[in-house]
Write a protein that binds this DNA or RNA. Structure first.
Length: 108
DNA sequence: AAACTGACTAATA
DNA sequence: CTATTAGCCAGTT
């Protein structure tokens, strides 16, 4: 049950286009668990090391990097994103206005 | 089994 | 704009 949800979450994250980011809430919604972004975070926490999931494209609703505040991890994610063309402002926040992934882009 | 925790969000002050 | 509160639910203790 829950396991499949995680799998879906990873799947959704895989669908994030390069140069775009998605919020936890958005992923949760796409994964079929609206209003439960915490589970998305949990899914990423237990993220299988062997999996190639672009977790760095996942940010919180404020457009900021969410992590466990371990040494240098935030910077790592930032570098990875900048490499994909994402731009940060002076506060280290992503301009969601320009980079947020619109999953319902094709539906709309 | 009950309480606590958490890679969150949205609403309020 | 930032700070606080409540809601949410699986995993951990």
């Amino acid at each position: 049950m829950s396991k499949e949800v995680y799998k879906t979450i990873y799947s959704v994250i895989h669908q994030i286009p390069k140069g775009r980011v998605a919020t936890y809430g958005q992923i949760a919604k796409l994964a079929g668990i609206p209003q439960q972004p915490r589970r998305v975070g949990y899914a990423l926490r237990i993220l299988p090391e062997g999996e190639k999931v672009p977790w760095h494209r996942v940010v919180n609703a404020q457009g900021k990097i969410s992590m466990r505040w371990e040494l240098g991890c935030v910077d790592l994610q930032r570098v990875l994103l900048e490499k994909e063309g994402i731009v940060f402002d002076n506060d280290g926040r992503i301009i969601l206005k320009n980079f947020l992934w619109k999953a319902d882009d094709f539906t709309r």
